[in-house]
Write a protein that binds this DNA or RNA. Structure first.
Length: 210
DNA sequence: AAATGCGCCAACCGCGTGCGC
DNA sequence: AGCGCACGCGGTTGGCGCATT
């Protein structure tokens, strides 16, 4: 595993001096080649640690402080649509939906919890910060929301699948990934409305521009 | 006042991926 | 094509501070 070849590296909290040294070095040479940054700056840290410190704390555009209501709402919505609940409910259908909404081939690669993706939509917030905030504050809220009456999947499937039929894009590969549990029993618990689907569609289209 | 429990956040770890050679 | 390096990502951990007993 990556350890930058040094077993006596500093670990733990960063001091103000270390922060200043790192910030100064990055200002001069740019935020890349982190292994090189770690060595040449004189910091007794691994490259990974330097990178993380820069990204999560020292970057000039990092916003500190509490999350606003708007940010919180955005995180909830994004996580609801692209977060990891996709995986622990019934993955096969989620993969198909994600892929179709993206206009991509069905693939496991589009169906993971993307904190970085969410972070890109919230200026000044890092994936680590959002992940922490989610774990600390929003997980409970999400649980509560999941107890609300589910909206039938039928309308959404109707929307997606009829579009697909008219385009004639159904593939055998798609069927294989689906694995057969996308019909029947699962439908009741997948509570994404058509309007939310449109919302995530526009979100994902935006993603391609980033 | 001291001990204990709990929540939060910064940082670390392990793994996957992209890229250059 | 295969290898190694660098980087990015999500999950997990450790430590600190506050609340409770």
């Amino acid at each position: 595993m990556e350890n930058d070849g040094n077993t006596s590296l500093n670990k733990g909290a960063w001091s103000a001096d270390e922060d200043a040294t790192l910030a100064q070095y990055v200002a001069l040479h740019g935020p890349k080649r982190w292994k090189c940054v770690a060595i040449k700056s004189g910091l007794n840290r691994c490259g990974k640690s330097c990178r993380l410190r820069w990204l999560n704390y020292l970057r000039p555009d990092v916003k500190r402080g509490n999350f606003s209501d708007a940010e919180e709402d955005l995180i909830l919505r994004l996580h609801r649509l692209i977060g990891n609940r996709f995986e622990y409910i019934f993955p096969s259908l989620e993969i198909r939906v994600c892929a179709r909404v993206c206009g991509m081939h069905d693939s496991y690669s589009v169906c993971v919890c993307r904190w970085s993706l969410i972070a890109k939509r919230i200026p000044g917030r890092t994936d680590n910060e959002i992940k922490n905030y989610w774990n600390a504050h929003l997980r409970k809220k999400e649980k509560l929301m999941e107890k609300l009456p589910a909206i039938s999947l039928a309308a959404m499937k109707e929307n997606l699948w009829s579009e697909e039929a008219s385009n004639g894009t159904e593939s055998q590969e798609t069927e294989d990934i689906g694995g057969g549990n996308e019909d029947g029993d699962d439908d009741e618990s997948f509570d994404v409305s058509a309007s939310e689907l449109n919302w995530v569609k526009s979100f994902l289209e935006l993603e391609e521009d980033v």
